[in-house]
Amino acid sequence: MTQTERMALAWVVSDEIEPADLITPELLAAFAAYAGLPKNEATQSALSDALDAFRGAWFDLDALRPESAENKALEAAAANAGKLYDDLLALQEYPGIEGRLERTISAFPHLYELEDGKTLRDLLGTRRNIFRTYRELLVDLQACLELTINRKPRRQVLDGLDDEDPIDLETDEEHAKRMKDWRARSKARSLPKEHALHAFLLSLRPYWEAHSPYPFTEGMHYKEANQTISFLVDAVEQVMAIASPDTTRAQIVTAIREVRASPR
C-alpha cells in the first residue's frame, strides 16, 4: 500500500482527520484548474463538503447489513415495543405504584426536553393510567416497525378440510404483484456500489453548475484518446487520487452518468 493509499484509508475511517485536511493548496489548484473554478475559499468549502458526503456514504455502504439481519432487528424492536406496552399496562394491577412513579417523575431534575420544552412529566396522563399516551405511541411504533419489515410474500392459501384441496386466497396475478413489490422494496434498501461517489457528486453538483463554465457531464468517449473527455471527470479524478486512490476513471464516469440520470 502506498503512502497516498494509507492516508486515504486513514482519512475515511478516522473522525480526527477532517475532509479539509486532504485539500492541500496543490490539490485545490489542480481541481480548480480542471473545473474552471476560482481557487478560493468557496471552492475549497464546496470540495470539503463533497468529501464529507463521500466519507459519510462510505460508512453507510460499509455498514450495510443483509436484509435478513435488518428484518430480524425490526422484528426484535417491534416485539419489545409490544412487550413494553404490556409491562406499562400491567403496572395498573399494583395499587399505588403509578402514583409513586408519577411523583418520582415530577421530582426528577434531569428529564429530557423536547423541542417545544415538554418533558416526560408533561406527557403523563391521569393517575391510575399515567402511561396511556406512551402505550398508544408504542402501538403506532410497533405497527410501523412491522410494516417496515420486508418479508418475501408467501402464497396465501387456506388448508382444506379433511381430504379437500387447499384453497387459494389470491390469484396468480395478485401474488405476482406482491412479489414484484417485495423485490422493488428489497432493491430500494440496497446501496449502489458507487454510493460514496454518488454522494460526492450530488454534493458538488450545485456549486459546479452555478460556477463552472463546463457542463456537469461525463462527456463523450473518444476512440483516439481511448477515454472519455470531460472536465468534470478530470477534476474528480484529481480529488479521488488523494481521497480514494483505488477509484478508477471508469468508475467516476459511471457514477456521473448514474447521478445525472437519477431524479433531482
Rank of each mutant, 00 (worst) to 15 (best):
T2I: 04
M7D: 15
M7S: 11
V12Y: 07
P19E: 01
P19I: 02
A20V: 14
A20E: 07
A20L: 08
L22K: 00
L22F: 01
T24G: 07
T24Y: 15
T24F: 09
E26A: 14
L28Q: 13
A32T: 15
Q44A: 15
A46Q: 02
L47R: 12
A53E: 12
A53Y: 04
F54Y: 14
F54P: 03
L61Y: 11
A63F: 08
L64K: 13
R65V: 15
P66F: 06
P66G: 04
P66D: 12
P66W: 04
K72T: 08
A73N: 10
L74C: 05
A76V: 13
A77I: 06
A77C: 10
G82P: 04
D86L: 11
L88Y: 03
A90P: 01
L91C: 08
Q92G: 04
P95Y: 04
G96A: 00
G99C: 10
R100E: 09
R103L: 14
R103P: 09
I105G: 11
A107V: 08
L111N: 15
E115C: 09
L124T: 13
T133E: 11
T133M: 14
R135K: 14
D140I: 15
Q142Y: 07
L145I: 04
L145S: 08
T148F: 06
N150L: 05
R154A: 00
V157D: 13
V157A: 09
L158R: 11
L158D: 01
D159I: 09
D162Q: 06
D165T: 10
D168M: 00
L169Y: 05
L169A: 05
T171C: 08
D172H: 04
E174A: 09
R178C: 00
M179G: 01
M179H: 01
D181K: 14
D181Q: 11
R183G: 00
A184P: 00
R185A: 05
S186G: 09
L191Y: 03
P192M: 03
E194G: 11
A199E: 07
F200L: 14
L201I: 01
S203C: 10
S203H: 02
R205D: 00
P206K: 03
P213G: 02
P213E: 04
P215S: 07
T217R: 10
T217N: 12
M220S: 03
H221N: 10
A225P: 00
N226Q: 07
S230C: 02
F231N: 11
V233I: 06
V236D: 06
E237F: 15
I242E: 10
A243Q: 01
S244Q: 08
T247C: 10
R249Y: 01
R249L: 08
Q251P: 06
V253D: 03
V253M: 01
T254A: 14
A255D: 03
E258A: 15
